[in-house]
Design a protein around this nucleic acid. Sequence first.
RNA 1: GGAGGCGUGGCUGAGUGGUUGAAAGCAGCACACUGCUAAUGUGUUAACCGCCAAAAGCGGUUCGGAGGUUCGAAUCCUCCCGCCUCCGCCA
Length: 420
Amino acid sequence: MLDIKFIRGNADLIKEAAKKKHFNCDIDRLLAIDEKRRALIAESDEMRRVHKEASELTAMLQGKEREGHVLKVKGDKDKLSHKEFELRTVEGEFDELMLSVPNVPDPSVPEGNSDTENQELRTWGKIKVEHGKNYMNLMQAHDMLDTERGSKVSGFRGYFLKNDGALLSMALWNLTMEHLVKKGFRPFMAPALVRRENLVGTGWFGGPNNPTEEDVYKTQDDIYLSGTAEVSMMGYHRDEIMNMDEFPKLYAAFSPCYRREAGSYGKDTKGIFRVHEFFKVEQVILCKADHQESVRWHEELTKNSEEIMQMLEIPYRVVLNCGGDLGLGQVKKYDIEGWLPSENKYRETHSASYFHDFQTRRLNIKYRDGDNLKFAHSLNNTAMATPRILCMFLENHQNPDSSINIPKALQKFFEKEKIG
RNA sequence: GGAGGCGUGGCUGAGUGGUUGAAAGCAGCACACUGCUAAUGUGUUAACCGCCAAAAGCGGUUCGGAGGUUCGAAUCCUCCCGCCUCCGCCA
């Protein structure tokens, strides 16, 4: 959510932003409704003031005088009720429109429709061009995965990780947690079941014309299964006013993650690259409302994940996401993409974005800065998502005999030098 | 799942229809005073919305949330959400 005062003063900027992000939102309509809304507020406030005075007078009157007075006040109340109804209707539309206004992308964000137009910023590691086996074959060879029983039990995209597949996953989470805790992140295990307001608050659910809800599971209790711990960790501080000296708040939150993948039935249908249920350690940060501060932490978040990729010795690149690949609230986003030899390309493993105060406005997360209350800034980035990372990990570390080398940094958590 | 109870300001906690945005206490802040590291006194301290360039100021809203009854609701009614206790079940 943006500040309506900011929108009023920067309508063109926001129209440009919506265009760059390929979001629909009718700013002119919003401004017209806002105008109407403010006029109605002024009118009903005044009517209510008069009505309040008259009501207080009632208490002092007696008998006939009182009856007559009450009769008149009743009539005025009726008019006030009509005005209030009108205002509520207008505010309903206003609120919906406000939720659909996208955040303004940073000027450095390139134009573009989709991830194919993201810009490569840097690469790390030496990529393998010879294929070897793909991760599915490797996992079968080492008895790490069962997708047949996975779909028998869990349905489409279901899977079981087993033996070294299970142990390797655990080792990856542990390495990640240790790395982040060392850097001052507080370890959390966060709920995946979340109430709707958290999805709206983080911008996963936008206004009425953003069909993003399709991709989120909803339970029969109207609780949702979140696709990331970002949602619950941001909800953690909803409606709070914090002290400035508490910042920055650094969280490393582990949680199961659920995605319906409604728009991608045809994509990555084999294997465990794209699944409905996975596990992730997410980095989440709340900091002071300062652009430079956000930028600094954004780089830091990205660096943390790069370090993890480097410890795991997986070649990767960092891309700057184009406008069309940004979410409603994101100002700027970097994806880290690990090298997947069998596809001969980089594929997304991490996604780092910052939001300025877009999320904290929706979630009402503030802090005290002297005499002022300000909305905090928020950021997040993947630290480790399994099982996807296994695809890159296994393919990049395979030997000609199909055995898998375990990088040194991971051996502390996975007590073998080799699989197979 | 069954039975009961409860949700008031940063915290504790009064308040069952008429100046109660809300007593009192604690905490915080400011000033005063005392020479001893703290006590005492006085004052002060909520958020949001609108008018305003802004501050001040003025008006409005807010006692878990949404509706309703009433001239008037923290107080009465309905639904929802959350929390607590006991029983049941259970990792």
